[in-house]
Nucleic acid binder design. Sequence first.
DNA 1: ACATTTTAGCTTCCATGGAAGGCAATATAG
DNA 2: CTATATTGCCTTCCATGGAAGCTAAAATGT
Lengths: 177, 177
Amino acid sequence: MEHPHPPSHPHSRPSDRVARIQADWRRERPDIDITPQGVIGRLHRLADRLTAELCLVYGRYGLGEGEFDVLCALRRAGEPFERAPGELAAHTMVTTGAMTKRIDRLERAGLVTRRRSDDDQRGRIVALTGPGRELIDRAFTDHMRNERRLLDLLTSTETETLEALLTTWLSRLENPA
Amino acid sequence: MEHPHPPSHPHSRPSDRVARIQADWRRERPDIDITPQGVIGRLHRLADRLTAELCLVYGRYGLGEGEFDVLCALRRAGEPFERAPGELAAHTMVTTGAMTKRIDRLERAGLVTRRRSDDDQRGRIVALTGPGRELIDRAFTDHMRNERRLLDLLTSTETETLEALLTTWLSRLENPA
DNA sequence: ACATTTTAGCTTCCATGGAAGGCAATATAG
DNA sequence: CTATATTGCCTTCCATGGAAGCTAAAATGT
């Protein structure tokens, strides 16, 4: 059941969950090459674990992931920290319907305001309030400290290699050149 | 605004979304080191893109991600393709409440059956039906072909390096040694 | 043997987001 | 200028999953 290699070999000792799933598949469907799961499965597993860690910090500020993203998008916009809902939806990759609800929650919490645009009466402008600005500045600082902690589980060489590989894959996925 | 490096340099030309976000933060919060986002942001972005691609295949078989996972867990179990709901929940990392609903949907579609356990009358046993078995065998074959296609955007060296890095990070995250 | 605790699965309620349609304001064609 | 199309946001409905509590069945202790 276990791998015969010594546990210190760099590539082995993957007695993790993904490896056990792969072993099951190899037994049940020996006709199929399931090696891609090694990468794709672990990538998703890792993303989930990281998300869980990040959400712990959002929660400390009373925010969910969605609200945090919106506040970040507003803060990143720079003075006067305003954006149209449609822009925010595009920036945070959700539908405008989802954005409406996020803004509802943030408005209810007093972190943003909504007003009509002057030049286009059907458009709205979402703006960070003082407390919103203050909150996201503290939360983001804490957030980056948290990401740094998670990243420090890798050496700087590993990090660089990983970032390069992720960037490569992502770009090939999005530009099917 | 754009990076001054030539676009062919291996590490640069990350004029992707994540890079633009980083540029915004550097302007707005020069006091904070936002390099961790380069890795963590792209990892999440990539995971999302991959998930979207994978869901296309699930959809071809009338399955959502959750249902697909459950059918896989049952199929992987081997003959007679049975498991308790609690086991399935543990294997697929959702709560038992979520599992109940997934099984409801699969049962309604005729892909699994539910019966009481003989030795423990409060336990249930979920079993793949004939059509369920047939469906997941076809769907999984197609799924792996799809994952292979996505993975082939990387060279085999890149793949190996990436898998090793993901495994390392995941293991350090889960065993805070 | 009986009462208590634990277990397994289910149910209910809530949170979040997508899809599709609605409404008011704006742009455009003739 | 008016009729139509488009745009921007919101609303409604649905799908999915988590949290917490419920019920029945087993395990445990006295």
